[in-house]
């Protein structure tokens, strides 16, 4: 499998992530905020600051932990990826 998998929070709508019990507060591609305030502002302007990130993530592994914004240690293998946050553990495709 080469695409992002079901554990891939970066593909969730940010609000879904933000409302999950473990709050995904950051974009896992650029590390930017996914806070409610940001999203409200984005809604008002009609612009989603992370839409480009979400489409890019189809061909990229995550780089930032969605919970704490730490840069993760990411290993890309021919058929998948693994990403580790020192605080929040491992995710994989």
């Amino acid at each position: 499998m080469t695409g992002p998998g079901s554990r891939d929070l970066g593909r969730l709508h940010p609000l879904e992530g933000a409302q999950a019990s473990k709050i995904a507060a950051f974009c896992d591609r650029c590390g930017g905020d996914l806070t409610a305030a940001d999203l409200t502002a984005a809604d008002l302007t009609g612009a989603d600051p992370h839409s480009a990130c979400r489409s890019a993530r189809a061909l990229e592994p995550p780089r930032f932990c969605p919970y704490c914004r730490r840069r993760m240690k990411v290993q890309v293998l021919p058929a998948g990826w693994r990403a580790v946050c020192t605080e929040h553990g491992e995710r994989s495709s």
Binding site: T2, A58, L59
Partner: peptide
């Protein structure tokens, strides 16, 4: 090159 690259992902083999 099939599968993923070094830091980015490729399409499915």
């Amino acid at each position: 090159i099939v599968g993923n690259y070094l830091t980015t992902l490729g399409r499915s083999p």
